[in-house]
Design a protein around this nucleic acid. Structure first.
Length: 593
DNA sequence: TGCTGCGCACATG
DNA sequence: CATGTGCGCAGCA
């Protein structure tokens, strides 16, 4: 790959500007680069030029002015004389559809070869290929799935494993992948393939005229619980950050998000919103969704619907409002409860009256709801697949099938060893590592993430403590049983504390965990070696960014989430490790600060 | 004053 | 007609 120093930054700048609906012109890009990455204008311009030359970025004229486009984004085929990027549709991938897997993997290989001719000679490293596919289809694959996919493709002949372990295209797939049609099965996204799949087009902004109507419909449609809806999303994909507010745009004024506001401002807005909502909400209309309220609110008063006490019980006790109605409860009252009172992992809460089955969207009026002890989603017994048995509700903390799936996925052993060190250790689980106990019924009693790096024989100072974390089994603040949430961890305000502030609190709280290495004197390579154990694909950014131990210890969450140009999922996982190294403790509470 | 979000008109295929 | 783009404005620090 052609080495352009600030390539990723430039792409991020372009993407960010596009998200902001601002023209990604040279001025704005330079400005963004300076502000965000401290890259001076001269360097930015030079690198941008190189990006254009290398077709990493397209320079286009649009409406009479020059804009820049991220070439990796789809839909720019018409801008360039020749489309460089693949144009395959975004699809919901079913593992049982080998043709589609084949298409994706061969297209990715072809894309990489097109972007860097060296790959033609030396093949595409598994890690790079995986990264490419995850970049495009990250929500549909886990790394383990991809490992299988690669294996399958080698077996099928769609891919060829080279002596150096890299991949190249097999059969006659070369030069075909940029087309979405062709007579090769492996590249075919024609009707036959598409017809057997749910094909959805790339999400994009709706025309403004229709937007209000759509939003209106959304507000009436209970199934608007974002991630569960099928079909095209109405808004540009917003990456999830547990510390973010995950707030709706509906009802929200223009300007900065609540998360960036100060506390008093938020309170004012919240109060206004609450009063507005209580006044205009008709009795029959069920409030909408997670995405239709302000999320975790912090009302100043009110009566707790659990203990019926008014206002705060103690100095640091908080009240939270139901995200659908104006019911309130003490966070501590919710924390001690399982079942229908549970808060969601994103620190929002639905009161029992508003809690709906995530399948049929009916409340408990139409049948008793069983609540997942991990994600707090509720299901009617007959709505959940498989049907929820009475005994499974009673004897154990019940875990829904979605949450059960995650750890099970990780148990699938790769059939092939694609450069074992690169892939085998990939962390696939966004939330849990439960492999030590395969019984999903015990999921809730395991620790959040305790990756147990396989000892590959590499001499490493990072061998870790036993996989079972000393921290109590918790997934989110609501399961913290220390008599309530950690001072303010239940609210969005807590997330607005500066990282350093948060860390300071924790730093002084406990002694170090001796099993967590002291990274302060690590070199770039040490840092890389540590992270490559857990994040074989992403670890390279630590090298690229020349992050040594000292820098690592200074990193803030925002650095990990934004400056490393990682996908959010890995970034969050990486952040956990960063934090762990920083405080030399593995405390789940840290990740919710 | 600068950054940001976003409604809506316009461009494009 | 569907979708991408970005002007122009508003909210905020």
């Amino acid at each position: 790959m052609t080495d352009i120093k600030n390539r990723e930054y430039i792409l991020e700048a372009i993407d960010q500007l596009r998200r902001r609906k601002a023209r990604p012109d040279i001025h704005r890009i330079c400005n963004f680069m300076t502000r965000r990455f401290s890259v001076d204008t001269k360097d930015t311009k030079a690198d941008l030029q190189r990006c254009v030359e290398n077709e990493v970025v397209y320079k286009v004229e649009y409406k009479g002015n020059i804009s820049y486009r991220n070439a990796a984004k789809k839909s720019y085929g018409h801008i360039k004389k020749e489309p460089v990027v693949s144009i395959e549709p975004v699809v919901v991938v079913k593992p049982e559809n080998p043709k589609l897997f084949a298409n994706i993997v061969t297209t990715a290989v072809a894309d990489l070869i097109l972007s860097d001719s060296d790959y033609l000679d030396f093949g595409v490293p598994a890690a790079e290929l995986m990264k490419k596919i995850l970049f495009k289809h990250g929500s549909k694959f886990t790394k383990k799935m991809l490992t299988d996919l690669f294996q399958r493709e080698v077996e099928n002949g769609g891919l060829v494993r080279m002596d150096n372990g890299n991949f190249s295209l097999g059969r006659s797939t070369q030069h075909e992948s940029e087309k979405s049609e062709g007579d090769d099965d492996y590249l075919n996204t024609s009707e036959e393939v598409q017809g057997s799949l749910k094909v959805r087009k790339k999400p994009g902004p709706k025309p403004g005229k229709r937007k209000n109507e759509i939003e209106k419909l959304r507000s009436l449609e209970p199934s608007s619980i974002g991630i569960r809806m099928g079909g095209r999303r109405k808004r540009a994909k917003k990456v999830f950050d547990p510390s973010d507010n995950n707030l709706p745009r509906v009802n929200r004024k223009r300007g900065r998000p609540l998360g960036s506001l100060n506390k008093s401002t938020i309170e004012k807005q919240t109060a206004a919103l609450l009063s507005a909502r209580s006044s205009d909400q008709s009795p029959g209309s069920r409030p909408t969704s997670r995405a239709s309220s302000t999320g975790a609110k912090e009302p100043m008063g009110g009566v707790c619907s659990v203990c019926h006490m008014q206002g705060k019980k103690g100095g640091c006790d908080k009240m939270i409002s139901c995200r659908e109605c104006s019911n309130k409860a003490h966070v501590s009252c919710l924390n001690t409860e399982e079942g229908i009172l549970r808060m969601y992992p994103d620190n929002t809460w639905q009161c029992p009256h508003c809690k709906t089955c995530v399948v049929c969207y009916e409340t408990s009026d139409s049948g008793a709801l069983t609540v997942c002890s991990i994600c707090a989603d509720a299901y009617h017994s007959h709505c959940h697949e498989p049907k929820i048995l009475e005994k499974s509700k009673g004897a154990f903390k019940w875990v829904c099938s979605n949450c059960q799936m995650e750890p099970l996925l990780t148990d699938i052993k790769p059939k092939m060893e694609i450069k074992q060190e690169d892939i085998d250790k990939a962390e696939d689980k966004p939330v849990l590592n439960l492999s030590s106990n395969p019984d999903p019924l015990f999921l809730a009693t395991n620790d959040q993430v305790s990756p147990t790096p396989p000892n590959s024989g590499r001499s490493s100072p990072f061998l870790r403590s036993p996989p079972v974390s000393p921290t109590p089994p918790t997934l989110s603040p609501q399961t913290n049983h220390n008599g309530g949430m950690h001072s303010s961890s239940s609210t969005e305000y807590k997330f607005n504390l500066s990282d350093s502030q948060s860390l300071k609190d924790f730093d002084t709280e406990d002694s170090y965990d001796p099993s967590i290495p002291d990274a302060s004197n690590w070199s770039y390579d040490d840092v890389y070696n540590y992270f490559v154990q857990y994040f074989p694909e992403e670890a390279i950014v630590f090298k690229e960014q020349e992050i040594d131990g000292h820098s690592l210890l200074l990193m803030k969450r925002v650095d990990v989430l934004t400056s490393l140009n990682l996908k959010l999922g890995p970034a969050l996982k990486i952040y956990r490790h960063v934090l762990k190294l920083q405080v030399r403790r593995d405390d789940h509470k840290l990740y919710w600060l």
